[in-house]
């Protein structure tokens, strides 16, 4: 019996030394430690021994088996570890499988940013048609026929009564005609101007207008609200000025300039939006009591703001839609 144990132990050591992978160690385990393995069989044999012989072999057998078991456990975990390290032969530097994402046009992105700020200030968003009546685009907004103010907006006419809207203000008219104050809305959309296409002007552009009509709206609040916008959009330290201007549909009217300081060049004031208190005539036209209610309105061009923000010098690139341009934003 003792010989058998020693032989088993010796053979185990020899075979153990030859093991070099998970497969052969499993074979080794089955051969020596499995249900019908050599050590298991030796234990069976041991059970048959007379009672007085048992102490003689028990200790030796136990020691041999636990030694084998310990050797096996250690080597197996070592092999498993090296196996897992070895198995994935991955080139981490290779490009991943391509998933091309698209994007919104940079004008849409700019508009979204403007919308976001005013939505946060409680503004709703309304849209309206591009082919408008002269009535909604001019008459209702206090541009009388034969008035020099009409020269301010070169217009594409369809006929005497219809035109391509020159601003999104007709949406204000539609809104005020169909709603009671308080009205607080932002109105984005395409507008058209009959101007030759050049680096500086295009026959259409995107405008966003805002309108707020309520009982206690003031010019000071208009200023405050627009300053919040300027700071959120251009940064806390934006330098700006409000100066008097003229629009038929607002009185008093103002234009807002921001100080633009390109690197290494001379800075200058750039006009970025027009605004004012809704002219009482406009409120009267839409049948809102202009004694009780006061409103303010403002408007800005998305292209102009996007050109400033992204350093784009030619308005035409927005409408060329070159993919190399689209991909940049």
């Amino acid at each position: 019996m003792l010989d058998k144990i020693e032989l088993a132990e010796k053979n185990y050591k020899v075979e153990f030394d030859a093991v070099n992978n998970l497969e052969s160690i499993e074979e080794l385990r089955i051969k020596y430690l499995g249900r019908k393995g050599i050590f298991t069989e030796l234990f069976e044999e041991f059970k048959q021994l007379p009672k007085d012989e048992k102490p003689k072999y028990g200790q030796v057998l136990n020691k041999a088996k636990s030694f084998a078991q310990k050797e096996y456990d250690e080597l197996k975990s070592k092999l498993e570890k090296s196996e897992s390290e070895k198995k994935e032969n991955i080139d981490l530097t290779l490009d991943g499988r391509n998933v091309e994402l698209g994007s919104k046009h940079v004008l849409t992105q700019t508009l979204d940013e403007i919308k976001q700020i005013f939505k946060g200030l409680g503004f709703s968003i309304y849209e309206g048609p591009e082919l408008e009546s002269d009535h909604n685009n001019f008459e209702m907004l206090n541009f009388p026929a034969d008035h020099p103010a009409r020269d301010m907006q070169d217009t594409f006419f369809i006929n005497d009564n219809f035109l391509l809207r020159t601003h999104t203000s007709p949406v204000q008219v539609r809104l005020m005609e169909n709603n009671k104050p308080p009205i607080r809305a932002l109105m984005p959309g395409k507008v058209y101007r009959n101007e030759a296409i050049s680096a500086k002007s295009y026959c259409l552009f995107h405008q966003v207008e805002g309108l707020y009509v309520d009982e206690d709206v003031t010019f000071a609040e208009l200023k405050g609200t627009l300053v919040v916008f300027l700071k959120q959009f251009f940064g806390e330290d934006v330098k700006y000025r409000f100066r008097p201007s003229f629009f038929p549909f607002t009185e008093p009217s103002a234009e807002v300039d921001v100080w633009w300081q390109p690197k290494g060049k001379e800075g200058r004031w750039l006009e970025i939006l027009g605004c004012g208190m809704v002219d009482p005539n406009v409120l009267e036209n839409v049948k809102i009591d202009n004694e009780k209610y006061v409103g303010y309105a403002f408007g800005m061009g998305v292209e102009r703001i996007a050109m400033l923000k992204y350093g784009i010098g030619d308005i035409r690139v927005f409408f060329d839609n070159d993919k190399r341009f689209l991909k940049q934003f």
Binding site: K104, L107, F156, C203, L204, F319
Partner: peptide, 11 residues
């Protein structure tokens, strides 16, 4: 879905 937005002249 991988689309780029374009804006073209309406005239």
């Amino acid at each position: 879905l991988g689309f780029y937005e374009i804006i073209t002249n309406s005239l």
